[in-house]
Amino acid sequence: MRDVDYGRAWTYESIVGAIPGVDVPDRVALAVQFALFEGAVLALAGVSDLWTAVPAATAAVIVATAGSALMLDLGRRLRRADLPDAYTHVVFGSSVETVLGVVAYVTLLTYLFVVDPRDGTALVTTLLGHPPSAPATFLALLVCWDVCYRIGVGWWAAVTALWRTLAFDLDQHARRAVAAADRRTAAFGLLQLLLVPFVTPAPLLVVAVVGHVVAVLAVLGVASMVR
C-alpha cells in the first residue's frame, strides 16, 4: 500500500495508508484482513455455538476480502495508466463509493431489523440465534458494512466506466488498462453471487443481490460495447 496519492485513492486506501507504521505488500494486507475476520468468526462460533452461521459468515468475509483486492488492483492499474485527470478524480477523489456503501448498508439494516421480522423470516435470528448475542451481532454488522462498502465500490467503478467511455477518447494503451479493470469489476460482481444461497430465506435480499449483479454487468457490458 505504498505511494498512495490521497487525491487519487479510494477512501479505504487513504485510511489504511494513513495509519502510522502500516506499510505492507497488498497480499499480506489481504491475508491479514481475511485471517482477522475469519478468526473472529470461528472464535465466536465456538464460544456461542453458532457453527451453522459459519458458512454464511465465511462467504461474506471472502466477498469483503475480494473487494479489498479489487480496490487495490484498480487503484494501481488506473493510476498507472495515462487517463484523464477528470476521470481519476471522480473515481477516487469524490468518495461517492462510500456514500453508495452507506446507502446499501442502511437499506440492509432497515430490511433486516424492520421489514424481515414483520414478514416472519427473521434472517438475523436464523443465523445468530434467538436472542442473538451482542458479540456475534457486532461482528455480523461489521462484516455486512465491509461487504456493502465493497458493493458501493463495484457500482461506482461500473458507472464511472460507462461515463469514461462516453466522455473520453483514450489511446490504445489506456483502453487496454481500463478494459482489464472493468473485467475485474465484473468478476467481483459475479463473486457476490456466493452470498445468494445464504439469504434464500429472505427473497427480497435474493432479488437485491442478483439484481445488483445483473445491473453492474449490464452497465459494464454497455461500456465495453461503446468502447
Rank of each mutant, 00 (worst) to 15 (best):
Y12L: 00
Y12F: 01
E13M: 05
I15V: 07
I15E: 02
G17C: 01
G17Q: 03
P20M: 00
P20I: 03
G21W: 00
V22H: 05
V22G: 03
V22T: 04
P25G: 02
D26G: 09
R27V: 09
R27C: 02
R27E: 10
V28D: 00
V28S: 01
L30T: 02
V32G: 04
Q33I: 14
A35F: 04
A35W: 04
L36S: 12
E38N: 12
G39A: 06
A40Q: 07
A40N: 06
V41A: 03
A45N: 09
A45M: 07
G46N: 04
D49K: 12
L50V: 09
W51P: 01
T52R: 15
V54Y: 07
V54K: 09
A56D: 05
A57D: 00
T58C: 07
A59S: 07
A60V: 02
A60G: 02
A60W: 00
V63H: 03
V63G: 06
V63Y: 01
T65P: 02
A66V: 11
A66Q: 15
S68K: 13
A69K: 10
M71E: 15
L72A: 14
D73C: 07
L74N: 11
G75E: 12
R76N: 09
R76V: 08
R77L: 03
L78F: 05
R79G: 08
R80E: 15
R80M: 14
L83A: 10
P84T: 01
D85W: 01
A86I: 02
H89T: 08
H89E: 07
V91M: 12
F92V: 09
F92C: 03
G93L: 06
S95Y: 13
L100R: 04
L100M: 08
V102H: 03
V102S: 05
V106I: 12
T107Q: 02
T107K: 00
T107F: 10
T107R: 00
L108K: 04
L109C: 06
T110R: 04
F113H: 08
P117S: 01
P117A: 05
P117N: 00
R118I: 11
D119M: 15
D119R: 15
D119F: 14
A122V: 09
V124P: 11
V124G: 12
T125A: 13
L128A: 01
L128T: 01
G129C: 04
P132N: 02
A134D: 13
P135W: 11
F138Y: 14
F138M: 12
F138N: 13
L139H: 08
L139A: 05
L139T: 11
A140G: 15
L142C: 13
L142Q: 08
V143H: 04
V143E: 01
C144M: 15
W145Q: 10
W145K: 12
W145F: 11
W145T: 08
